[in-house]
């Protein structure tokens, strides 16, 4: 890649730059800052669209009393049962049980706190699920 061809397509890096190695007119390598490249931006956007879609599905199922609010925070934090179980140091089957609305409502505070701490929210917030996935973590 030539230095003058180093892409400058902003999208995912906010105010930051990434370093690209490119050749100058003499064929020598130089370091060139870049604000991003469109194909990388598109691939990134695709990943967030998937998360957003999963989140919409899970919100619908929570509203239908099919899943507990815990499912929302799990998906919002891009986790599955296996990963979440590791973070809260509980067995997978217990986490799976807590995805049941009735079981979740009966949870004692100490367990709720583990979840809350993992997700960086308060224990009260754990029971709050937005109406739809206005995804505040994604790009833009």
């Amino acid at each position: 890649m030539r230095k003058k061809n180093v892409p400058q397509d902003s999208g995912i890096l906010d105010r930051w730059h990434e370093i690209k190695y490119a050749i100058d007119d003499d064929g020598c390598y130089v370091l060139a800052p870049s604000v991003g490249w469109e194909p990388a931006n598109i691939a990134n956007k695709q990943a967030w669209e998937l998360i957003s879609k999963q989140l919409d599905d899970v919100i619908k199922r929570i509203q239908a009393q099919d899943l507990s609010p815990l499912a929302y925070y799990m998906v919002k934090n891009q986790m599955d049962i296996r990963l979440l179980a590791k973070y809260v140091r509980l067995s997978r089957w217990r986490v799976r049980r807590h995805l049941n609305p009735a079981a979740f409502r009966r949870l004692k505070t100490s367990i709720l706190e583990r979840y809350a701490k993992t997700f960086n929210v308060s224990t009260e917030q754990l029971f709050d699920v937005p109406e739809s996935s206005i995804f505040d973590n994604g790009p833009k």
């Binding site: 890649m1 990434e18 390598y29 194909p39 990388a40 691939a43 990134n44």
Partner: peptide, 25 residues
């Protein structure tokens, strides 16, 4: 989705398949 994932691993900041070839060059 799979292809998108390969590209992210290849081109997203800090990893990079093409980028690594340039660093090695």
């Amino acid at each position: 989705l799979n292809i998108g994932h390969v590209i992210r691993m290849q081109e997203e900041i800090g990893t990079g398949g093409a980028g690594f070839r340039f660093i090695y060059a």
